[in-house]
Design a protein around this nucleic acid. Sequence first.
DNA 1: CGCAAAACCTATTGACATAGTAGGTAAATA
DNA 2: TATTTACCTACTATGTCAATAGGTTTTGCG
Lengths: 133, 133
Amino acid sequence: MFSTKGRYALRVMIDLAQQESDEFIPLKDIAERQDISKKYLEIIAKEMVKGGLITGASGKHGGYKLCKEPADYSVGEIIELMEGSFAPVACLENDCSECEKSAECKTLPMWTEFYELEKNFFYGKKLSDLINN
Amino acid sequence: MFSTKGRYALRVMIDLAQQESDEFIPLKDIAERQDISKKYLEIIAKEMVKGGLITGASGKHGGYKLCKEPADYSVGEIIELMEGSFAPVACLENDCSECEKSAECKTLPMWTEFYELEKNFFYGKKLSDLINN
DNA sequence: CGCAAAACCTATTGACATAGTAGGTAAATA
DNA sequence: TATTTACCTACTATGTCAATAGGTTTTGCG
């Protein structure tokens, strides 16, 4: 189950993508529109800036904006940044070197197959695909 | 990420499916073969009995066995019993009636699509598909 | 220059799930 | 009657989730 971090981040991205102007959008506005705690969104927005999804600007008329066109963001990169790997099992995270039984593991091929399916699904979806009315 | 409960349950099912005889298999043997804490497996096996995946028998020559042929179990039913719903977001769990914004939600169609994909994948996989060498 | 708005920062919290452990009781067989 | 096994209740340490609280820095505007 995806957590609020990933889901809220996606909603922030959609909110930003829906703004017409190229100005910075204050988090206060986003939090009100999306009905999410502004304080909690601060944490999420900070991670999004650090991960290169959005740009932040302090001070008056500051806020956040996208770095790229909505069509250039995949849903996968947004979720993966916030939630960590899509790996359905620990063995598939990172290098997988720790499990000695991988060669004889009866379930690993299935997990791998699902992992690929999931990545293809979410990396195939673009942010722009979500904002059509 | 799937937890050990679902993964261990699947390994117990595979272990049972690989046994030639129709006798009850003691958990001690399974725990040793699979290198999983027997005490923890007890909890898992109890849930599996309750959910109708396996049958248990107490006393000498007791243990656990499958209720059906391996080909008649889907991986989906095993995982879903142990992990709960496959729903990727809370809105899709149960009746979804709580979210008032579902009609205008930009992300719900995507979550629904993924939910169907995931269910189809895991309900399409049979236990017998995992035990070919 | 000073004020307000905004991001940015550190720390803390309550609730819950995970992954077990511990120790005992009941049932069945030899 | 002893042994083997499932079955049962309770407990625990650790970590994650979903925030909250309160402060500091940056920036534009009057």
